[in-house]
C-alpha cells in the first residue's frame, strides 16, 4: 500500500511559487529523503503532507485517505519540525502527558512514562523543559512526536543545530525507533540524509529535479550531482 500519494502539488504564497507540480509516491514502510537547498520548498512539502497546509493545486492521499476531511487521519502522522512543539513552562513528563491525552490514548500515563525512559530522560522527567540542553530537547521532541506511535513520521531538517556527534546519536535513535514506519525526512546535507534513505528526491525551486527509481542505484553519483548543484547553484540535468 502507498503511505503517501501526492499528485501535482502546487503551492503559491502570493506571487511566489513554492511548489510546482510535485508528484510523489511512498510505499508504506519505506523512507524517503528529500534533498534541496533552502527555499527549495522542503518545509512547504512537509507541511502539506502533515495536513498543516492546504495545497493551491493537486492533491494528497495518506494511506488512501483524504487529509482535508478526515480529522482522525492525523492519528497516523507524527511530525518533527524546526520547532520542538514543547512548552518550556511544563515539565518533560507533563509535555508528553498532554500530547498523549490529546491523542486520546487510553493508557496515556503509562505511555508517557515508557517513552521518557526510552529516550533516556527518566531522571529529568519532572524538570521544566526550559532547563533542557539542546540534545535533551531533541530527544524529547522525538519522544513527543512518537507518543501516539504513528505509522508515518515526517521530519523537517531534524539535523539543524546538531553537531556531528549529536547528529550521529540522532541517526542511531531514528534507526531504533524506525521499525516498520514510513519516514519522510528533509535535509540539505547529503551525508546525513543518505544513511536512512530507501529512495530519494531532490527538490529545486519547488520542483522535483531528480527522483530515484528502483532503490538507490548509485548513491555516490547522486551525491556528486547534488554537491555540484549546491556549489554552483545551477542544476545540470
Amino acid at each position: 500500500m502507498q503511505a503517501i500519494e501526492a499528485r501535482g502539488l502546487e503551492k503559491a504564497f502570493g506571487p511566489v511559487q513554492a511548489l510546482r507540480r510535485v508528484t510523489l509516491d511512498v510505499p508504506a514502510g519505506e523512507s524517503l529523503v528529500v534533498f534541496g537547498p533552502n527555499g527549495a520548498g522542503k518545509t512547504t512539502l512537509i507541511k502539506i503532507l502533515a495536513t498543516l497546509m492546504r495545497p493551491s493545486g493537486g492533491w494528497v492521499r495518506l494511506f488512501g485517505r483524504d487529509p482535508q476531511r478526515d480529522d482522525d487521519l492525523r492519528r497516523l502522522i507524527g511530525v518533527v519540525s524546526h520547532h520542538s512543539y514543547l512548552y518550556a513552562g511544563l515539565t518533560a513528563l507533563e509535555n508528553l502527558l498532554f500530547a498523549a491525552r490529546m491523542y486520546g490514548l487510553p493508557d496515556a500515563g503509562a505511555r508517557a512514562a515508557e517513552l521518557i525512559h526510552a529516550v533516556g530522560l527518566g531522571l529529568r522527567r519532572h524538570d521544566l523543559v526550559r532547563t533542557f540542553s539542546r540534545g535533551m530537547l531533541q530527544r524529547l521532541t522525538i519522544a513527543r512526536a512518537l507518543v501516539h506511535n504513528p505509522p508515518l513520521l515526517l521530519l523537517d531538517e531534524p539535523y539543524t543545530g546538531l553537531d556531528r556527534h549529536a547528529a550521529a546519536l540522532f541517526t542511531d535513535l531514528l534507526e531504533q525507533l524506525r521499525g516498520d514506519r514510513t519516514i519522510v525526512l528533509t535535509t540539505h546535507s547529503i551525508e546525513q540524509g543518505l544513511v536512512l534513505a530507501d529512495r530519494i528526491v531532490i527538490l529545486v525551486d519547488g520542483a522535483v529535479a531528480y527522483e530515484s527509481r528502483d532503490g538507490l542505484e548509485d548513491q555516490h553519483a547522486v551525491g556528486q550531482l547534488y554537491t555540484e548543484f549546491v556549489r554552483t547553484g545551477a542544476w545540470v540535468h
Binding site: 511566489v16 533552502n38 527555499g39 518545509t43 547553484g233 545551477a234
Partner: peptide, 13 residues
C-alpha cells in the same frame, strides 16, 4: 539566473 531567492522570511543560503 541561478541565484537563490527567499521565500518569506526564510534565510537565503
Amino acid at each position: 539566473a541561478g541565484t537563490q531567492w527567499t521565500v518569506g522570511t526564510q534565510e537565503v543560503s
